[in-house]
Simulated scan of single mutants.
Amino acid sequence: MTEDGIMELAKNEGFTNVAVIPADKLVFDRELRKYCEENVCGNYGKNYSCPPFCGTPEEMRDRAGKYGRAWIFQTIADVGSWDNRRKLVEVKADHNRRSRNLIQMLREEGVDGLPMLAGPCEACGTCKGFSGEACKYPEEAPSCISAYCMKAELMAEEAGIPYWCGEGVVAYFSLYLV
């Protein structure tokens, strides 16, 4: 599939911005892992796509380093206020649903790659990591950009798309490395 074809599929899926950059332009910073370890989102050690299950920062960087191009899919939405938790969750869930749909379409077209979503895998609703059971979908459990310790602001800058969008406006990112 051509880059124009991927761009068209992504735009049809409803993303605000779509960009592609060389994967070697992605910047990783081991120090970002501390945010996962602080467990602000509540998934550390409870979701197989999150640390420590997903791998060390070095393993994550090496996994991403096997690819040449980084497709970036972005959703920008006005949520009114950063305190509007319900709207934030709703917009992120919709972004990730569209990301999974797009990635499935690309795979069906023979475009294999490494997906990264805005937040941890939610394929099971409640991850089996909470109970210690084996992952039901180990090949379909994408980690988030944060788990990769990627500097999303630098990625957005390299791609020429916004990172900070103003008060009450959120920007969610997904990637597909090919």
Rank of each mutant, 00 (worst) to 15 (best):
A23L: 02
E90V: 04
P138E: 04
G5L: 13
G55N: 06
A141M: 11
E139S: 15
S81D: 10
K11V: 15
D94Y: 04
E90H: 06
S131N: 03
C124L: 04
Y44C: 05
L32F: 11
L117V: 08
A19Q: 00
N96L: 02
N47H: 01
N84L: 03
K136V: 08
A70Q: 01
I76L: 09
T16K: 02
E8N: 09
I145K: 00
G119M: 05
I6E: 02
V178I: 14
W82L: 14
N17T: 06
A77M: 00
A77G: 03
Y67K: 04
D83L: 13
E109D: 14
M150L: 06
L9G: 07
Y172T: 11
R33F: 13
S49V: 03
A77K: 05
F53N: 13
A159N: 07
V91W: 02
S131L: 05
N43R: 10
R107T: 08
S146V: 03
R33W: 12
K92A: 14
G113A: 13
A123Y: 07
R86V: 10
F28E: 07
I103F: 13
D4E: 14
I72Q: 01
F130G: 07
G45H: 02
G113K: 12
N101I: 15
A64N: 08
M7L: 13
P57W: 05
C127V: 02
F53W: 15
P120H: 13
E37R: 11
D94Q: 11
P22T: 11
G113C: 09
Q104L: 15
I145M: 00
I103C: 07
E167M: 09
M116D: 02
G160F: 06
I21M: 08
A123G: 11
E108N: 14
K66N: 08
Y137T: 11
A147P: 05
R69F: 07
P57V: 04
E37N: 09
M60Q: 10
C121E: 01
A19T: 11
G42Y: 03
E139N: 15
Y163W: 13
